[in-house]
């Protein structure tokens, strides 16, 4: 069975929170995974009001060496997981803005929109 690196949605209504997990592909989303690699909190944290240069941020916790290991033994990241892992240089980015733009253009040519 394929081992995947994917996100498992926890948290509450309108307050998503994800575990970044390694799990078999055919198991349920929130079932107990092989390993919890970390977490992804998609709600941006607002910066302190007294610092004009501070930017909002999103918190991600990740065990980098374990992620590297699982990728090395052939675990397949889902698209969102790929996006996160590529940010810290564990993978080549899958969708670059230029590529996405090209695809949209192509599609618009095909469908004539």
């Amino acid at each position: 069975m394929v081992v995947k690196i994917r996100l498992a949605r926890f948290g509450k209504k309108h307050a998503p929170f994800y575990n970044i997990v390694v799990a078999h592909a055919r198991t349920a989303r929130n079932s107990k995974p092989l390993e919890v690699l970390g977490t992804y909190d998609p709600i941006p944290k607002s910066p302190p009001p007294n610092d004009p240069h501070a930017r909002p941020w999103k918190d991600i916790k990740l065990d980098r060496s374990r992620a590297k290991y699982w990728l090395g033994v052939g675990a397949q990241p889902s698209d969102p997981a790929w996006r996160l892992l590529s940010m810290i240089g564990l993978l080549e980015p899958k969708y670059r803005p230029s590529m996405v733009g090209g695809k949209v253009e192509k599609r618009s040519l095909i469908y004539g929109t």
Binding site: V36, L37, P44, R55, I60, L62, D63, I88
Partner: peptide
């Protein structure tokens, strides 16, 4: 990691 609208802060942890 800087993104247009916000930063992504990756904290290294130990499983």
């Amino acid at each position: 990691v800087r993104a247009p609208r916000w930063d992504f802060k990756f904290r290294d942890i130990n499983v």
